[in-house]
C-alpha cells in the first residue's frame, strides 16, 4: 500500500507533470519526422527508392542506429545523430527528478514512509515507466504526423529505403517486409536499462556524471559492435533479425534485464547508506 502511494506520487510528479519528459520526445519525434520525410522525398525523386515510405520505415529511421563501424584509414566514424538524440535525450530528461525529490518534499515523504527501499523501488518503477512513456510519445507524434500527411501508417518496411539510409550492401541484410513485436520493444527495454544504470551511478557520482557515463556507453556501442555493449541491442539495424551476423534479440532481452536488475540491486544497497543532503 505504502509503495503504491509512493509510486503514484512519483508517476504524477516525475512523469505526468514532467513537461520535459513529454515535450522532448514530441519535439524530437517531429524533427526526425521532417528529416525522414525530406530524405524519403529526395530518394523517391532521384529513383533511389521505388515507392512511398511507411510508418515502419520512420520507426526504423528512429531506432536503426548505424551499420557496423570498421576503424581504418579513410573511414571516419560518422556519429549516428538521430539514434544518439533519441537515446541520450531520455536519460537527460529523467536525470534530475529523483534528486530534486530527495531534496524537496520527497524528503518529508521518505522519512514518513520510514523506508529507503520503498523510495528506491518506486524510483526504479518510475524510471521504467518514464522511459516507456518517452518512447511512446516519440512514436505517437510520428504516427500523428503520418496521419496528418496522409501517409501509410503500417509497420511495413522498405528494404530499398533502409539500404540507402544505412549505406548497406545487398548481401548484408535479410529481406524483411514488416517489423515484428520483439524488434519493436527491444530498444525501449535497453533504453530503460541504460537509464537505470544512470540513476544508480548518480548515487555514486554527481547526476551529470551519471548522464555522461550513460552517453558514453551509447557512444561506445555505436563505435563498436559488441554483445557486451548494451546499446547495440537498441539498434534495430544491428539485430540479427535484420543484419546477417548481428546481435541476437534474445541476448538483447537478457542483457537489458540483467543490466536493469543489477543496477536496481546495486542502487538498493547504495541508497541504504546514501547521505541525503541539500546540495
Amino acid at each position: 500500500m505504502r509503495f503504491i502511494r509512493y509510486f503514484l506520487f512519483d508517476l504524477k510528479q516525475g512523469a505526468l507533470h514532467n513537461k520535459a519528459l513529454l515535450l522532448t520526445p514530441a519535439a524530437i519525434g517531429a524533427l526526425v519526422f521532417l528529416d525522414f520525410l525530406f530524405k524519403a522525398h529526395r530518394y523517391l525523386a532521384i529513383g533511389a527508392i521505388e515507392e512511398s515510405v511507411s510508418y515502419g520505415d520512420y520507426w526504423f529511421y528512429l531506432y536503426g542506429g548505424m551499420k557496423e563501424y570498421t576503424p581504418g584509414p579513410g573511414n571516419a566514424f560518422s556519429f549516428p545523430v538521430v539514434w544518439m538524440l533519441v537515446f541520450a535525450a531520455v536519460p537527460f530528461v529523467l536525470l534530475n527528478y529523483p534528486f530534486r525529490d530527495m531534496g524537496g518534499i520527497g524528503q518529508q515523504i521518505l522519512v514518513r514512509s520510514r523506508s529507503r527501499s520503498t523510495w528506491w523501488l518506486s524510483k526504479c518503477c518510475w524510471n521504467f515507466v518514464g522511459t516507456v512513456l518517452y518512447h511512446l510519445m516519440l512514436q505517437t507524434v510520428g504516427a500523428a504526423l503520418f496521419l496528418l500527411f496522409g501517409m501509410d501508417l503500417t509497420y511495413r518496411i522498405h528494404m530499398d529505403f533502409i539500404r540507402v539510409v544505412y549505406d548497406a550492401l545487398h548481401e548484408e541484410l535479410w529481406e524483411r517486409s514488416a517489423l515484428p513485436l520483439a524488434v519493436l520493444v527491444l530498444p525501449a527495454l535497453v533504453s530503460a536499462a541504460v537509464n537505470m544504470l544512470q540513476m544508480t551511478l548518480s548515487l555514486f557520482v554527481r547526476p551529470m556524471f551519471g548522464f555522461f557515463a550513460a552517453a558514453l556507453l551509447l557512444l561506445a556501442s555505436a563505435y563498436l559492435m559488441s554483445p557486451v555493449l548494451a546499446g547495440n541491442y537498441a539498434m534495430a539495424y544491428r539485430c540479427d533479425w535484420m543484419l546477417k551476423g548481428g546481435v541476437t534479440g534474445r541476448a538483447g532481452l537478457t542483457a537489458a534485464a540483467a543490466l536493469f536488475v543489477a543496477a536496481f540491486l546495486l542502487g538498493l544497497v547504495r541508497f541504504h547508506f546514501y547521505d541525503i543532503l541539500e546540495e
Binding site: 531534496g103 524537496g104 518534499i105 524528503q107 522519512v111 520510514r114
Partner: peptide, 20 residues
Amino acid sequence: GRDMEFPESIGFLLENPAFL
C-alpha cells in the same frame, strides 16, 4: 540505520521548506 531506517514518530523542518 541498523534497527530502523528512520525514527518512528518525527516531524522536521530543515533549511528551506519545500512543497509542491
